[in-house]
């Protein structure tokens, strides 16, 4: 299968802090890749360096064969992004934000359909700031899917969602994946990672400490539950003691 995201020896420092330390990864078309790690482990910085919103100090990135810094306008016709911290214009309505986003793409998806799929179809006339945290989170997943992307980046996609809403999001993403969508996500919910991800990379202080499948993580660590495996592999268990 074709590798649609290729990251080779990526590094990024903030002052003295090595936020991303020599990370390499590759994601095949139609698969889901999970970037895991504690808060501050470097997940968001890695994503931003891959997308080119942050300039990496070292390393090569290629998405769909494009260089994200140089071919920005071509690449982002085909890539959707949901950032962890997203802001929106003051007073903007859901419909306006959707329409404005859709206007930027050649073949946008139908925003109303997407909103109702994600359970916010009745909020389309509301202002974005009047939405609850969970509704806003779902709106930003919708925004990431508006380009009808080949790849979507979702940073902490279900943070702030209730159990039912999380399950609904998983279902939709599974369908999209079956239709060939490639997903790179970060998450703190190991049940979610187990359901969705084909491959994972666990980060600790900017370094990749595990790279492989969920099953492999369980067997390497000798745990039956993936959450336990994650805690051992990420070293959080040991750090806590």
């Amino acid at each position: 299968m074709e590798e649609v995201i290729k990251v080779d020896r990526l590094s990024k420092t903030y002052g003295n802090l090595l936020a991303v330390d020599d990370i390499s990864l590759s994601v095949k078309r139609g698969t889901v890749f999970g970037l895991l790690g504690a808060n501050g482990a470097g997940k968001s910085t890695t994503i931003e360096c891959i997308l080119g919103t942050k300039q990496a100090d070292k390393g090569q990135v290629s998405i769909l064969g494009y260089n994200p810094q140089k071919d920005r306008q071509k690449l982002f016709q085909k890539v959707g992004v949901q950032f962890q911290e997203c802001d929106y214009q003051h007073e903007i309505k859901v419909s306006e934000l959707c329409e404005e986003t859709a206007s930027l793409y050649k073949t946008p998806a139908d925003c109303r359909d997407l909103c109702s799929q994600f359970g916010i179809g009745n909020k389309i006339k509301n202002s974005v700031k009047s939405l609850s945290g969970g509704e806003r989170q779902r709106l930003f997943i919708v925004i990431a899917l508006i380009p009808t992307p080949e790849i979507v980046f979702l940073d902490e996609l279900t943070t702030g969602l209730d159990t039912k809403a999380r399950r609904d999001v998983w279902k939709i993403l599974s369908v999209l994946k079956a239709n060939g969508l490639t997903i790179l996500l970060t998450s703190h919910f190991m049940d979610e990672v187990e359901v969705l991800c084909d491959k994972i990379c666990i980060l600790k202080k900017g370094k990749a400490v595990f790279y492989g499948t969920v099953e492999y993580a369980k067997s390497v660590s000798g745990c039956n539950k993936f959450e336990d495996a994650y805690l051992i592999l990420s070293g959080e268990e040991a750090d806590g003691e």
Binding site: T53, R72, F76, D87, T101, L104
Partner: peptide, 17 residues
């Protein structure tokens, strides 16, 4: 303001110039 509130950052990951 759009820059500070990261609205421009959101635009950066779209095809807009």
């Amino acid at each position: 303001e759009y820059r500070e509130r990261k609205i421009l950052k959101r635009f950066k990951v779209t095809p807009v110039s």
